[in-house]
Structure formats: C-alpha cells, structure tokens
Design a binder for these strands. Structure first.
Lengths: 189, 189
DNA sequence: CTGATTTGCCTATAGGTATTAGGTAGAAGC
DNA sequence: GCTTCTACCTAATACCTATAGGCAAATCAG
C-alpha cells in the first residue's frame, strides 16, 4: 500500500497544471484524485473542500505571476517598465491560461489582503512613479492599467482576436504605446 | 395537470434573470426547472442541454446590450458618443451582472458571427469614425476600447475597487477621458 | 523493541446535477 | 368520438461533492 504522499502543496501545484490543461472551471476534486491515482475522499484530508482547492490555486497563481512581473520589471523604468509589466502579464496568461483564470477568482477580503494581489498593486504603483502622477491620478492610472491588461488578455484568450488582422501582438504594442502616451500627458511634471 | 407553457424563449429569459440573481455559472438546468416548478427532464424538450441554455442566455444578453448601447449612442459623436458607449456598457453590467457574465461566454465561430457581437464591433467602429483613424489604427483602437471597458467592468464587478478611494465612478470618467485623449492624438486629421 | 497513537488512504453512503429512454394524459385535429 | 401529437412525467445512469467511519502503516513513548 504505497502512499502517494499527498500534501496541500502538491495538490495545489497539480491543480494548477490541470487548470492549464482543461480550464480552471474544469478543475475538480475528482479529476485531481484521478491524477494521483487515489480515491476522491483521500483528498479531503488535505483540502477543506473544492472551493478551498480553487482558492489555493488562485493564491499560487497570483504569487507566481507577481514574481514573474517583479522579475521582468526589475531595473527598468518609464515606458520600458510599463512594457515589461504588460508583457509579463500577457505572456503568463498565454503560457498558463488556467492559472491566469484562477487569478480572477473572487477572494474574500481577508484572503485577498494576504495574497500576492497586494504585490501586484504595489508594482503597478511603482511603475507609475516613473510618470510622476499625484493622487488621485495614480489610483485612476493603476485601475486603468489593470483594466486594459486584464481586458485585453481575457479577450485574447477567449479568441476574440483570432479571426481578424492585424495580429494580437501588434494591437498589444499599439495599446501599450497609447497607455504610455496618456500617462506622460497626465504627468504633473 | 397544468402545463406551465415552457418555450426556449421563456426559459432563456428566466435563465437570464436567474443569472443576475445567483451568477451566470450557477445557472443550472435544475435551478431553472425548480423556478418553473417542473421536473428537470421536461426542459430537455426545449433545450438541447445545459450548454445550449448558456449559449441562448449569452445571445440574449449580447442582443440586449447591443440594443442599449445603440440607443445610448444614437445622435452623438466624438467624446460624447464614447462616453455614452462606455456608460451603457458599464451600466448594463452593474444592472445585470449575470447577463453581462453571459456575454463573455466563448461562442464557436459560426454562432459568434450570427450573434449581436458583430453589432458591438460595428458600433465601436462607428464611434471611432468620429476620431478619424485609418487602418490598422482603427482596429487597434476597437480592441483597446473593448479591453478597457470589459476589463474595468469585470474588475469592478469582482469588487476590486470597493475598498479604496476614490470611487469607481471617478476612475471610470478619468479613464474615458484618457481614451478620448489618446484617440484624438492618434487621429490622422 | 513493543504497545499505543497518529497518519493517510480506504469503503460506504448520501445528495446534487446532467442526460437519455420511454410512458401518459390532455389538447388538437379529423 | 377516435386518433395523433404535445408537453410533461417517471425511471435510470453517470459523475461530482462531501461526510462518517475503518484499517493498516508509520511513528512515538517507555
């Protein structure tokens, strides 16, 4: 009777992989149990329930994405930092669509506050520092960046740009340029 | 034995209402059957399956939203039209979160081509006509507007702006202003 | 090193949703 | 009044979530 050595961490990671393969909303306790060749109830020693699993995957993905973005942005400023931020975001979503979808899971306030979501907001603010925005413009700008990036990536993943020219990459670059232009205009410096 | 008079149309409309009440992903054939006080299999005479129901709700919502936007934009141009478009979009999502979520359902190419999604794209292009953009800028701009609006609304509905100042409306207006500014800059006129 | 405890996965079970097959009663048509 | 059709039904299968309780391997105390 070999024990597969289940842990919340291994289950979360496997859940993230599963999400990328079949979609975040197809991640079920059952599918995960099959993947470990284990009976379903065995997972309930490690997970409170299926929502707990989803939350763990979301937190995992938020952290992973934040780390990537931090890495991409390091040592850059201004337009350069903005583009690196944007690309890190888009690339992650394209590489890991299921994990990206997981980051959109609605978390309760407490969980959200303890998550890497906080880091995301801080990094966005850090990039905007280069543009010299005062409050409340900085907050507006953070929200605008979040909206554009999330919106674009989510439309692209949904296949919205597949059947028309120009390619999704050109539009992405055009949009990042536009954001840079707008932020420079809004600057008080 | 009273017959409730089920039809695909009534089921779709009730499904849309249900979506607004409990969330689009909580719309199930079972819940809909309960709402009509009917056994679940009875619905299968009117719906192919649960995905068919979701698609019908999506198409219904796309059309309803397109009609609203068309109405809001009628007789306006430039910044005015842009703001009307934007507000119609956001207001619909706030009033009908479930239906709005339904509009994000991924449709196969054929279904999408026959849907009111086409109208949405045309209206966005119509608004951009006022800004005098040549291709491919016009397409980039359509994608940018779609991204921002969808992204913002989806973050707002997810509660992302609830626990921080300034209010979601101010940011919305700031963003619409910014879009207007960028589009004027991009104009070839 | 041995007996007790804990751990980790198991079986059994119950309830919910999706879907198909096939039955029946009332409405509509001849 | 008889047939046919329609609209909803019961029955049955399959899969997912979740809980309760069991058993054997691993771990720990003396």
């Amino acid at each position: 009777m070999d024990r597969p050595g289940l842990t919340p961490e291994r289950l979360t990671r496997a859940g993230a992989e599963l999400a990328d393969e079949v979609g975040f909303d197809q991640v079920t306790v059952s599918a995960l149990a099959r993947r470990f060749d284990v009976k379903v109830p065995s997972l309930y020693s490690h997970l409170k329930n299926s929502q707990d699993l989803r939350i763990r995957i979301a937190l995992f993905a938020l952290k992973e994405l934040a780390d990537r973005v931090a890495d991409a942005v390091a040592g850059r400023a201004g337009r350069d930092a903005l583009a690196a931020f944007a690309d890190a975001y888009r690339d992650y979503a394209r590489e890991h669509p299921g994990r990206y979808a997981a980051t959109r899971l609605r978390l309760d306030r407490e969980t959200a506050a303890a998550s890497a979501g906080v880091q995301h907001a801080q990094m966005a603010r850090a990039i905007l520092r280069g543009y010299g925005l005062d409050e409340p413009d900085a907050t507006h700008a953070v929200r605008m960046l979040g909206s554009v990036f999330h919106g674009y990536v989510s439309l692209e993943l949904a296949g919205g740009f597949e059947h028309s020219a120009p390619g999704a990459l050109e539009s992405w670059e055009w949009i990042v340029d536009s954001l840079d232009a707008v932020l420079r205009t809004r600057s008080t410096r």
